[in-house]
Amino acid sequence: MRIVVCIKQVPDTSEVKINPETGALVREGVPSIINPFDMHAIEAALSIKEQLGSSAACSVCVLTMGPPQAESALREAVSFGVDEAVLVSGREFAGGDTLATSRALSAAISKIGADIIICGKQAIDGDTAQVGPEVAEFLDIPHISYVKKISGISGAVIRAERMMDDGHDVVEAELPCLITVVRELNTPRLPSLKGKMAAKKIEIKKLGLADLGISEEEAGFKGSPTQVKKIFTPSARTGRRMAEGSIEEQVDAIIKELMERKCL
């Protein structure tokens, strides 16, 4: 059994600030983290490996695409107990949208080989939730989205519960299969001492454009159908009033508003 976990190094968006004068993002000093949903993907892979035990030889490989500094995210993953780490890197990959990213990741996964591919449900910087299903389509394998419980893996079949908007479905899929996971699935472990040692020593395998057999036109910005046209901060609502005066007066203003809206 071979499990590949796709992770992304992201800026901690809860720490992002906006420059009120320019409306631009302030990126300085924003820490980089492993996308929180991917932490649950790593945990899922490690617990599958433990459950299978020695009965089936099982290895977990963590894969990311990004600039050279994304290596630190891979090393952190290794500290939790992941066996191998692969970095897809090169300037040709820069600026890729979900289609170009999925094309590159799926090519890398074909090279690594996988029975189960696990992704976080979405990355907190892009929030698209598209790369998982798109990778599955490029690989021509089934996928299960929003997995909150893995009920079992037997033979060549995985059974899981996927979250829907108002409940859940129990789904079975043939392996190889890709799943995307949600927070409810598990609680990520802390790094072990042994893992930290391994993280320092591990040799990270690097793959570039030529290794993946992708042309320059298919990668990064050139291989991306979507383009960002402009970026802006949302506009203020018109007709806003502020409740002035003492607390009494402010509360009375709220009550007046509630009555006008027929909420009292």
């Binding site: 929030d127 299903p133 829907m164």
Partner: peptide, 23 residues
């Protein structure tokens, strides 16, 4: 952009090799 749309629509976009904008 529901559980259903967000799950299968990316597969359609990948099949058609076209762009998809979420949410």
């Amino acid at each position: 952009a529901t559980a259903i749309g967000r799950s299968f629509f990316p597969r359609v976009a990948a099949r058609l090799r076209t762009g998809l904008t979420a949410d």
